[in-house]
Design a protein around this nucleic acid. Structure first.
Length: 295
DNA sequence: GGCCAGGTGCGTA
DNA sequence: TACGCACCTGGC
């Protein structure tokens, strides 16, 4: 695969930036538009490209992609890019090979639906988000729409997060902070019936009853799901989303209303996620993106 | 003014 | 095991 490499770094008006080339099969727009994270928004570009800004891993950051495919990361040095954002954006992973595997998984000659889905979703990278943030965010997402999900998460961060290093934003609150806040306070942020779920998750994680790092290390996928589903308000969909977007478990295959539409419209039965092996989650994102955003 | 949203828990057969 | 339904709230 093409390997990303730093071509420039510096500072403009006191803001550090790093410029990266060799970033193929990557779309900032699709990656941050596909609903896997809730703390990024489109912002004005500095170099005429497409830019999003937000907080991840406790840092305020902007990603801008220009037409020639060059990626600029604002609020980061070359060292930050190599140690943090390369992995966060999954740019260390060979998606060309994954796309090929996903396209031929159901049929060695290439399944027409999968070919179309891989084309529609081409450029999406599964982010490696913080496990707790992903878990908590997808608890909030249930029976909810994206604008409100973002609003609730913003409110949680504003009230219970800590300042980022540059002081410009708030990090995602720790499990301990939300556990200590308690159900009434979380309900007061308009979380609705999810308040008790958020606090149940926060308490179990803060107490160490559920060890998220251990879940991340666990190789048996059903064990990971079962562990997260001990939490009230965490069913298969929320568990799979958290595992896919926060725990690096690319075999997770979240089934929501959109995926049910995909199954009904394009498949007589299935698709059977097992056929995609450890890339089931990526296949899911392509199918989801096709159904939800391309049609 | 309603319907519905990237679900889940609970009660009922 | 397999349904049906309530659930907070606010976008649209």
């Amino acid at each position: 695969m093409e390997k990303p490499y730093v071509v420039d770094e510096g500072k403009i008006d006191g803001l550090s930036f790093v410029e990266v080339a060799g970033v193929g099969n990557f779309s900032v727009f699709k990656t941050f538009d596909c609903g896997q994270c809730f703390r990024f928004d489109p912002t004005g570009p500095r170099r005429g490209g497409y830019a999003v800004s937000g907080v991840a891993l406790g840092r305020y950051v902007s990603f801008e992609q220009t037409d020639d495919g060059t990626l600029a990361v604002w609020g980061a040095t070359a060292d930050d890019f190599e140690k943090i954002w390369l992995s966060y954006l999954s740019l260390d992973t060979d998606y060309d090979a994954i796309d090929e595997a996903v396209t031929t998984a159901l049929d060695p000659d290439g399944c027409a639906v999968m070919r179309r889905a891989a084309e529609a979703g081409r450029g999406i990278r599964i982010l490696r988000q913080d496990p707790w943030e992903a878990l908590c965010s997808f608890i909030v997402s249930q029976n909810n729409n994206i604008p409100r999900i973002k609003k609730i998460i913003a409110a949680l961060c504003e009230k219970y997060g800590e300042d980022t290093a540059d002081g410009s934003a708030k990090s995602f609150p720790t499990a301990r902070a939300l556990a200590e806040a308690g159900e009434d306070a979380i309900f007061a942020l308009r979380t609705g019936f999810r308040a008790k779920y958020i606090v149940d998750a926060a308490r179990r994680v803060a107490d160490g009853e559920i060890d998220l790092d251990a879940v991340a290390r666990e190789e048996d996928f059903p064990t990971c799901e079962a562990e997260l589903m001990k939490i009230k308000g965490v069913g298969p969909k929320v568990a799979d989303c958290a595992l896919l977007f926060g725990f690096g478990k690319t075999e997770a295959y979240p089934v929501d209303v959109w995926m049910k539409k995909v199954a009904a419209r394009h498949f007589a039965s299935g698709p059977d996620p097992k056929l995609f092996g450890k890339y089931a989650g990526i296949a899911q994102q392509y199918l989801f993106y096709m159904e939800r955003y391309v049609g």
